[in-house]
């Protein structure tokens, strides 16, 4: 494992911890899109099917369990927790996220590295992860005022994606046969979706202002 991959995994882990911390300690999910969180839960559930069949490393298994556990508990908090769910703004979080799922299923059936159940599910999870942030970005655009923790959560997610790209570049030059077009292209699309957010995030940071997206 190279430094970019490790740093990517850690920023991903921190992003989830920041979100759980926000929800658990201040008992609020204001500004968080349930739609995006449901999509992430589906992403991890379909990607980590191999947790029972393939052993890669203890690190790998632990991280998979953490991502599965945290994504489903975040969804549980927003939907079921009696205090947290009151802060969920259903009226603003209106992105039709179900419509993202079907195209990803079709695309995974058509474009995959191998036509097996596990491989198609893995590919589906990559396509879905690429677009899963969209409901969250739309919600941000609507609410405009973003609290610090929500801003940091999205920043860390974007940082994780960017570090994974550096990891792929590194692996491409250091490992033989390391060519994964599907992973790379969907990862690149996903990272590009953060470009706009990053621009405003750095702008507010540089000027020491509160993060605010333009209308």
């Amino acid at each position: 494992m190279n430094i970019f991959r490790l740093a990517g995994d850690m920023t991903h882990l921190f992003s989830v911890l920041v979100l759980l911390l926000k929800i658990h300690t201040i008992k609020s999910c204001a500004g968080i899109s349930l739609k995006t969180q449901e999509l992430y839960a589906l992403v991890f559930a379909t990607r980590y099917l191999d947790i029972f069949t393939d052993y890669i490393s203890l690190y790998n298994t632990c991280m998979k369990l953490i991502f599965l556990g945290s994504s489903f508990s975040i969804v549980w908090y927003i939907r079921r927790h009696k205090i947290v769910r009151r802060s969920y703004d259903k009226e603003q979080d209106t992105f039709r996220h179900h419509f993202l799922i079907l195209p990803c299923i079709i695309l995974a059936l058509l474009i995959n590295e191998k036509f097996t159940v596990k491989e198609v599910m893995w590919t589906f999870s990559l396509y879905l992860e690429a677009v899963a942030i969209l409901p969250q970005l739309v919600l941000l655009q609507r609410t405009r005022n973003i609290d610090n923790l929500t801003g940091q959560y999205i920043f860390l997610l974007g940082a994780y994606r960017s570090l994974y790209i550096l990891n792929w570049i590194y692996r491409y030059f250091t490992e033989q046969h390391y060519v994964h077009w599907i992973t790379w292209i969907s990862g690149l699309v996903q990272t590009l979706l953060y470009a706009d957010f990053f621009y405003y995030y750095f702008h507010s940071w540089k000027n020491n202002e509160k993060l605010q997206l333009p209308a």
């Binding site: 191999d50 490393s57 790998n60 991280m63 590295e113 191998k114 491989e119 994974y164």
Partner: peptide, 10 residues
């Protein structure tokens, strides 16, 4: 040689 189905990344 790494097989295609070896998904060692998260």
């Amino acid at each position: 040689e790494a097989k295609d189905e070896d998904h060692d990344e998260l």
